[in-house]
Nucleic acid binder design. Structure first.
Length: 272
DNA sequence: TGAATTGTTCTACC
DNA sequence: TGGTAGAACAATTC
């Protein structure tokens, strides 16, 4: 389940290895054409042919390949991975898309669940219009968070998952950030105190930076590049810790559903 | 066999 | 109308 730190890890890795390469072609070995979300494979190829990758960046959970002309964006969704080599031949079964570069190397978009998508566009307006602030940008300050929470009459958990509010947070890191701040996932945003908001701001930043530092979370299905793995799993406090004691107070961690999403929290540290 | 899994988008409501 | 809530959707695993 790649979220911001996992996507950033992939971006860092790919930057070292494929920036400067020129795309020769893209194809879908399993004929899964739905992966090309806003175009056909033919259009995509016409657009990408001989196009050089000048930069790789991240916006929310989207990986952005800046090309000499236009942009190619990839969203990994649940199980998507970008690999330079396949471990075993049978892995080809799950490859949604395959890039070939002019130097003979390849990049595989392996995706067991097939929810991942590829988008190409001349500019990034469509992305900017639907994504909120970057939680690691300079514009995202403690004051910004408090001011915007004040304006929302929504439950905290669904609000933090809303990509148009803050871009990049997913189920894992939202549960961790709320636990860090001692905020119940069902609390209404406008009722959060300034002190709680400040703590939440600290939590979001430190959790994301920590996770990036150890290359993300190895839960279920994340790996980057050439089979590298993240180590943040060891640092999770509540996510996936149902029925285990809270690291702070030893109360048993509970799992509930909020907006149809599994939500882990400590009933003692995060009172409603 | 159907429940579980996720982020995004669509629809419906007040 | 705009903010919010909830359902739907993609596909696969166990």
């Amino acid at each position: 389940m790649p979220e911001l730190p996992e996507v950033q890890t992939v971006v860092n890795f790919l930057t070292k290895l494929i920036v400067g390469k020129t795309i020769l072609s893209i194809n879908s070995p399993n004929k899964y054409t739905r992966v090309f979300s806003n175009s056909t494979i033919t259009e995509c190829n016409r657009f990408l042919l001989k196009n050089r990758i000048t930069k790789i960046t991240r916006r929310g959970k989207y990986i952005i390949f800046a090309l000499e002309e236009g942009y190619l964006c990839i969203h990994l969704r649940m199980t998507g991975k970008l690999l330079l080599n396949l471990e075993i031949e049978s892995d080809m079964k799950y490859v949604s898309a395959q890039f070939e570069f002019t130097d003979g190397t390849q990049l595989f978009f392996k995706d067991v669940r097939k929810f991942g998508r590829i988008y190409y566009s001349e500019n990034l307006d469509w992305l900017e219009s639907k994504l909120g602030i970057e939680p690691l940008s300079e514009k995202f300050t403690s004051k910004y968070l408090y001011q915007h929470l004040q304006q929302k009459n929504r439950q905290m958990k669904p609000l933090l998952l809303d990509q148009s509010f803050i871009a990049g947070l997913g189920n894992i890191y939202v549960d961790e950030a709320l636990w860090y701040a001692g905020i119940h996932p069902l609390m209404i945003a406008s009722q959060i105190s300034e002190k709680q908001s400040k703590k939440l701001y600290e939590g979001i930043q430190s959790i994301l930076l920590n996770a990036i530092a150890v290359k993300g979370t190895t839960i279920i299905n994340f790996s980057y590049g050439e089979n590298g793995r993240g180590n943040y799993k060891d640092q999770l406090n509540v996510f996936g810790e149902t029925n285990n004691p809270c690291p702070k107070c030893k109360t048993i961690i509970q799992k509930i559903f909020v907006g149809q999403r599994g939500t882990h929290f400590c009933p003692a540290c995060q009172p409603n």
